[in-house]
Simulated assay, not measured.
Amino acid sequence: MNTFLAELGKKVAERWLSLLVLPGTLYLAVAAAGATVLRHGDWYDLGMLANHVNRIAARRRGAGQVVLASAALLLGSAGVGLVAQSVGSGVARLWLATGRGPVGRRLTEQRRRNWQKAHQAYRRVLLERYRRQQGWGEAGDSDPLPDSARLLVLRNRICLVEPDRPTWIADRMRAAGERVHQAYDLDLTAAWPRLWLCMPEASRAEIATAQVAFTSACRLAGWGLLYVVLAVWWWPATVIAGAIMGTAWQRGRAATAVLAELVESAVDLYGRDLAQALGLACPDAFTPDHRAALTRMLRKGV
């Protein structure tokens, strides 16, 4: 037991160090160097920064002062890390927002128009290809058609279903539920907690890993927003913030894509197991009758 607790404490300490203290220490260093010493006018003057550090290092300090300064740095770094986590939670809500406000509605409408335009282009090519295959084409219809597969990819880059959210991330998660409903007539929101209990540990671990990756991307975006604050005193912090936010958005999209695919795959693989666990007899195929009965059962008449 003592060995287990020691190992658990070691892992917690490592996680605390990597998630809070190290990024927080870097942030405080940038804040001290850029916002306190360099400022806007001397943003590039590394020589002045080096002289400032040398003056601080030359001051004589007792052991107590060193301990107190180290403790203050450690606590300050952890505190900034906790703030970044809180901001990251807000970023997650923003990325997954339904967008019912005026700005969200405008963004949603723009995404919907882009998707409909791409969808119409894809449909036109499919209809023209079918028309030619049926021999309904005219004499001048010898020009090669655009690549329908490429047009489908362009449409799906916007969203797999018609958009109804202001961000790609929110729509990709919504699309998982829409696609499950279209394929199985199953309410994913009602089914997911029960489906989670039916899944093997390995499958749940894969989904949990994707969720952790998304949370990490949101936390990284939180750090990016904190660097925006430093730009008030040291403008190069905007460059740092832009790089961090861009990386966070790309990681968030990648994690969302993996998570949504895993959720859909879980329904594909374990939907029949869920029906059987709830007492529905489906030894061979998961038929539409089973799906409708399962949805009624999970919703409990609501």
Rank of each mutant, 00 (worst) to 15 (best):
R219P: 02
R155Y: 02
P146M: 02
R39K: 11
A241R: 02
L75W: 02
G62C: 03
R172A: 02
Y122C: 03
W235V: 12
T247W: 07
V212I: 06
G81Y: 02
P288V: 12
Q250A: 15
W16G: 14
G224F: 09
R15I: 09
G41L: 01
D273R: 12
L294E: 13
A202N: 06
Y184H: 13
R172L: 05
T98A: 08
G252Q: 05
F4R: 10
G177L: 02
G99S: 13
E14Q: 13
A139N: 09
L226F: 07
P200L: 05
G137I: 07
G47L: 06
R124F: 12
L294F: 10
A84D: 06
T167H: 09
D141W: 13
N114R: 14
A183E: 12
G79F: 09
F4Q: 11
P102T: 00
V161T: 15
P102V: 02
G222R: 04
L22R: 12
L186H: 11
D42S: 13
W115S: 12
L160Q: 05
M199F: 13
E206S: 04
D273K: 10
D164L: 03
V103A: 14
D289E: 15
V87G: 10
V161M: 09
V21F: 15
L195N: 09
R179T: 03
A35V: 08
A35Q: 09
V263I: 13
V30L: 08
D45K: 03
I56T: 00
A210S: 13
W234C: 02
R194M: 11
Q116S: 09
T238Y: 11
I158A: 10
G41D: 01
E128G: 07
W115G: 12
A248N: 07
G99Q: 03
T25A: 15
A221P: 00
I169G: 07
L68N: 01
G90S: 08
R123K: 10
C198R: 08
G90N: 12
D273Y: 08
S203Q: 14
A33G: 07
G9C: 09
G101L: 05
V228C: 11
G177D: 12
G101H: 07
P23W: 06
L19Q: 05
A202K: 06
L20Q: 06
N156A: 01
L186Q: 06
G88W: 05
L226M: 14
L73P: 08
R61E: 14
V103C: 03
